[in-house]
Design a protein around this nucleic acid. Structure first.
Lengths: 120, 120
DNA sequence: GGAAGAACCTACATTTTAGTAAGTATGGAT
DNA sequence: ATCCATACTTACTAAAATGTAGGTTCTTCC
């Protein structure tokens, strides 16, 4: 691999680092966090209210993973009570767009899928 | 909701059925299965060899879930040794295309994400 | 005649993930 | 004076996902 060449990952390989990123983005809460943030900056508590069923613990953990991948930006204002704003980085927006494409498709085709469920 | 209207799901709602479908498609192995099948029909053992790290158990289970959602088609030929072919249904192809869009993006942007890892 | 191969299933053990509850700091409302 | 709200963390527990190993069936190949 020469300088300037970028390493192209292969998700099908068990030890490819892409697997980690995929895991973060497709984790139960990761997907939903990206979805909400795609609509705009949001603070912790609002994020928690928007995403039905997340616990504080999981939301915090998920946000840290996504921040660690450079997809989410965390900005904390040193006030009391604490005020922290989460948003997508440019990179995160690209990823979130793909995630949203998938969830939108699912929402739009739910009834067709449910028809299969009913048939069984 | 009148006749003919289709129910539009909301993944953000904790009890929305879309959550189930999302879980199947974004499960660790579900994603990869869709990816491989997008390239064409494939039998069980080949699928297993293509997807690095899957166990037979998980592959079988994942395929059943996706089949149950009407995304994957299973065709078994009653011969010995068994011969079973898996492929995507038209619905599955649409879903797989979205999944592939996400994984392709990750593969293409891996180095940028790794740069974030290195910075930490 | 023994081994290998296909596509599974089942039981059991382990690992990962997730939920609950409690704690922290401090200013403002009641 | 007490309680609420924010954005977390930590410890403990419970539940879910996943891996491992073994069994099945029948035929073909050495």
């Amino acid at each position: 691999m020469k300088d300037g060449d970028s390493y192209v990952g292969d998700v099908l390989a068990a030890d490819c680092p892409t697997r980690q990123v995929l895991k973060h983005l497709t984790s139960q809460w990761g997907t939903l966090v990206m979805l909400v943030l795609l609509r705009g900056t949001c603070r912790f508590s609002l994020l928690r209210r928007r995403i039905g069923g997340v616990s504080e613990r999981m939301l915090a953990q998920t946000l840290q993973l996504l921040e660690g991948d450079g997809l989410v930006l965390r900005v904390a204002y040193p006030v009391v009570p604490p005020h922290v704003e989460y948003s997508l980085t440019p990179l995160g927006m690209e990823a979130a767009a793909r995630v949203a494409a998938l969830t939108d498709w699912i929402e739009a085709n739910l009834d067709e899928i449910q028809a299969t469920w009913a048939a069984a």
